[in-house]
Simulated assay, not measured.
Amino acid sequence: MGWSYRKSIKVGPLRLNLSRRGVGHSWGNRLFRVTRGADGRRTVSVNLPGGLTWRKTRAGR
């Protein structure tokens, strides 16, 4: 099993995600969130009450 590192810094609705691969960021709230990972992937998430979740991911670089 390999080692990993992840640190998240929250500044209002913006969150910076630091990892071994690089820096990613996301913004939004519990219901709607847009994320860009360190590898360039973009994900849009919509979370509805009752546990329903919709996610769409687009490839990065």
Results as ranks from 00 to 15, higher is better:
residue 31 L to E: 14
residue 58 R to M: 08
residue 2 G to I: 15
residue 41 R to T: 12
residue 46 V to Y: 10
residue 58 R to E: 09
residue 18 L to M: 03
residue 42 R to N: 04
residue 36 R to C: 06
residue 51 G to Y: 03
residue 49 P to S: 05
residue 48 L to Y: 07
residue 26 S to H: 02
residue 37 G to R: 13
residue 43 T to W: 00
residue 56 K to G: 04
residue 52 L to V: 11
residue 8 S to D: 14
residue 51 G to V: 05
residue 25 H to R: 11
residue 51 G to N: 01
residue 35 T to A: 05
residue 6 R to A: 09
residue 13 P to G: 09
residue 6 R to M: 04
residue 43 T to Y: 03
residue 61 R to C: 06
residue 14 L to G: 02
residue 45 S to N: 06
residue 2 G to H: 14
residue 58 R to D: 08
residue 45 S to K: 10
residue 21 R to E: 15
residue 5 Y to I: 07
residue 26 S to I: 06
residue 35 T to R: 12
residue 6 R to C: 06
residue 22 G to N: 00
residue 26 S to F: 02
residue 44 V to K: 10
residue 11 V to D: 13
residue 14 L to I: 05
residue 45 S to P: 06
residue 49 P to E: 01
residue 17 N to V: 15
residue 59 A to T: 12
residue 35 T to D: 13
residue 48 L to E: 09
residue 31 L to N: 14
residue 35 T to Q: 05
residue 51 G to H: 00
residue 11 V to P: 07
residue 9 I to W: 01
residue 19 S to K: 05
residue 46 V to S: 08
residue 5 Y to T: 11
residue 52 L to I: 09
residue 61 R to F: 14
residue 54 W to M: 14
residue 17 N to P: 00
residue 55 R to C: 10
residue 52 L to H: 13
residue 32 F to R: 10
residue 23 V to T: 07
residue 31 L to D: 12
residue 16 L to W: 09
residue 2 G to K: 15
residue 4 S to G: 14
residue 7 K to D: 14
residue 28 G to E: 00
residue 43 T to I: 10
residue 6 R to F: 06
residue 10 K to F: 15
residue 20 R to P: 10
residue 52 L to R: 08
residue 40 G to L: 08
residue 18 L to Y: 01
residue 54 W to E: 09
residue 56 K to A: 12
residue 23 V to P: 02
residue 12 G to D: 03
residue 37 G to Q: 12
residue 24 G to K: 05
residue 48 L to C: 01
residue 47 N to I: 08
residue 30 R to S: 15
residue 55 R to Q: 11
residue 33 R to G: 06
residue 13 P to N: 10
residue 61 R to D: 09
residue 25 H to D: 09
residue 9 I to F: 13
residue 29 N to Q: 05
residue 53 T to P: 07
residue 58 R to W: 14
residue 52 L to C: 03
residue 39 D to E: 14
residue 21 R to A: 12
residue 16 L to Q: 09
residue 3 W to M: 15
residue 28 G to F: 03
residue 16 L to E: 08
residue 9 I to D: 12
residue 15 R to P: 01
residue 17 N to E: 07
residue 26 S to L: 07
residue 43 T to P: 01
residue 38 A to E: 11
residue 36 R to A: 02
residue 31 L to Y: 13
residue 9 I to N: 06
residue 44 V to T: 00
residue 25 H to Y: 14
residue 32 F to S: 04
residue 38 A to H: 03
residue 16 L to T: 09
residue 6 R to S: 13
residue 61 R to S: 14
residue 33 R to C: 07
residue 23 V to W: 07
residue 53 T to L: 08
residue 2 G to D: 14
residue 34 V to D: 06
residue 61 R to Q: 14
residue 37 G to M: 09
residue 30 R to N: 12
residue 7 K to L: 14
residue 59 A to P: 00
residue 61 R to G: 11
residue 55 R to N: 06
